[in-house]
């Protein structure tokens, strides 16, 4: 067994799924919305990037920008349809979830109707090269994935920590009522949040398209994995999501190497159920003490 391969695979997967999980986590904790349309945003931005590579240019920055922009656009659409009309209505969490599912249903089929069921692929963005770090062979797509995901995530997290908008989003996460009292508009802030998380989905889509294809339903499995990670990490906690991503990435790579690919989901869900039964609020329950009360 090649441990180097296992570790690089684990880190790559952790980065992609972690991006999705953090996007979902931020949406949940600041807006109270489980964004089930994330898979649709994912697929949409994949198609956006594909169109850009077809009609504009197939250079990496253009494709990345196109993917992220389409993702942000999808985020705005979801925000306008599933959040703004009902966010102050009764039983919003379940209704928001259902509305996002409806968008996912309609959107995926719309993509199917426009682009057809045939899968599309993006050009290789990171070139073809290999590096040897301490005897571990790292291929270009893995390195590129890790670097770009980490770069964007760090950017987002730094922005959340230090800027005024970031403080706005975090304040809204903690107490939406108090947020409106200090002058934070819930609806305008929700648009920023959705643009940001949609952009993250777009990045993940472009990066994952290096290994998977772009198809109308390609977003569903990554979304479910991202959700699982967010769950394991504890919905709403960014460090929890990172820890969960690492844990599940390691699990996926190890299972694939030791037992075989078809057992990945089984071990993954057993792991999730185990963690959730031990810690009903996910890993974040251990990491973050200030969230009590």
């Amino acid at each position: 067994m090649d441990f180097g391969l296992v570790i690089t695979n684990a880190i790559t997967l952790a980065c992609i799924y972690g991006t999705l999980a953090i996007g979902l986590s931020i949406t949940w904790s600041s807006l109270g919305l489980v964004n089930m349309a994330y898979g649709f945003i994912f697929a949409l931005s994949g198609y956006g990037a594909w169109l850009a590579s077809l009609y504009i240019s197939s250079s990496a920055p253009v494709i990345f920008a196109a993917g992220i922009l389409t993702g942000a656009l999808g985020g705005i659409v979801v925000c306008l349809c599933a959040f703004i009309p009902i966010h102050d209505k009764p039983s919003f969490p379940i209704r928001g979830l259902t509305a996002a599912l409806a968008i996912s249903l309609a959107g995926n089929e719309l993509l199917m109707w426009i682009f057809g069921p045939r899968a599309k692929s993006l050009p290789q963005l990171f070139g073809f090269w290999k590096v040897n770090i301490f005897g571990v062979v790292v291929t270009s797509d893995k390195a590129g994935t890790v670097v770009s995901a980490l770069f964007l995530l760090t950017l987002v997290l730094l922005w959340m920590r230090s800027s005024r908008r970031g403080l706005e989003i975090r304040a809204m996460m903690m107490n939406p009522h108090a947020a409106s009292i200090v002058g934070i508009g819930v609806r305008s802030t929700s648009i920023y949040v959705m643009i940001m998380t949609g952009g993250l989905a777009g990045l993940a889509a472009v990066v994952l398209a290096q290994t998977y294809w772009i198809s109308p339903f390609s977003g569903i499995t990554p979304m479910i994995k991202g959700l699982s990670i967010a769950l394991v990490g504890g919905l709403g906690s960014v460090p929890g999501a990172v820890a969960g991503a690492l844990l599940l990435g390691v699990n996926e790579a190890l299972t694939a190497a030791l037992l075989g690919g078809q057992y990945v989901l089984i071990t993954q869900f057993l792991l999730i159920i185990l963690i959730l039964i031990l810690r009903p609020r996910g890993i974040a329950g251990i990491l973050d003490r200030a969230r009590e009360a």
Partner: peptide, 25 residues
């Protein structure tokens, strides 16, 4: 069994995972 311990949305997401698990299997 997990429904005894988990909150609403957590359980919803978990069961969605179970369906996906069955499908893949």
């Amino acid at each position: 069994l997990p429904a005894l311990k988990l909150d609403g949305l957590y359980y919803a997401l978990l069961t969605l995972g179970i369906v996906e698990l069955c499908r893949v299997y």
